[in-house]
Design a protein around this nucleic acid. Structure first.
Lengths: 111, 111
DNA sequence: TTTCCATATTCCTATAGTAGAATATAGATA
DNA sequence: TATCTATATTCTACTATAGGAATATGGAAA
């Protein structure tokens, strides 16, 4: 294993690629929905997010490809679940960062 | 504060936006460089990453805009530093996720 | 002021990403 | 087999983004 992964350009690309998978608000919303349920089929996600079926399918396919979610097929349905639970921690940290920044910006304005 | 940030579509967009800022390998490399130094001027980053000066400037500007880095101007130089230290934890978690996934994929192949 | 240096910005081009409609696939049921 | 349902894929138009060359800005030095 690399001691300092961020000094490895190839790993930097892999990291960037994973962030890219998280860089779309539709996908974040899908993950939020999946977090609150063990697994969901595509139709539930479509109704739960109000995102076009084709889009949901494509987003799920991308999330699966990068290893963030997992599919279980049963009959003609596909049940998706979060495979990499770290994703939730990561989103949590990002939330903290965002809210902290908002606080700092506010206090900089004297609020 | 929102109890469940991921149920808030606006926050989902903010989260996605922040991930987008991290979704480029040039920016990850710049952050890697900044992590190992307290602060760096633009020229040092250009030589340290071997990325075009205009690109470095644009990437830094984006990272600043979303609150990930901070600038201190002195004379005609601009010294950049990481403002949101959580970013480093986040990158670390992503690294773990990537390597874990590689392990899983390998063992799935019987390696 | 003229010149030099560091950084930022503009302009252009190429590429990639998204949404949505339409269509394809494939399992389930009649 | 014909049909229905769930999901995936294709196609198209649109928008966003990155890289690089050229240029602009603005502080420092001559």
């Amino acid at each position: 294993m690399e001691k300092d992964p961020l000094n490895n350009p190839a790993l930097c690309s892999a990291i960037a690629e994973r962030f890219k998978a998280l860089s779309d608000s539709s996908r974040i919303r899908i993950l939020a929905l999946l977090r609150d349920a063990d697994e969901l089929n595509v139709s539930s996600i479509v109704t739960g997010t109000d995102i076009n079926q084709a889009s949901v399918s494509k987003h799920l396919s991308l999330l699966k490809q990068v290893g963030i979610v997992h599919v279980r097929r049963e009959g003609n349905q596909a049940f998706y679940s979060i495979r990499d639970q770290k994703i939730l921690d990561i989103c949590g940290l990002v939330c903290e960062g965002i809210t902290e920044r908002m606080k700092e910006d506010n206090s900089a304005l004297g609020l």
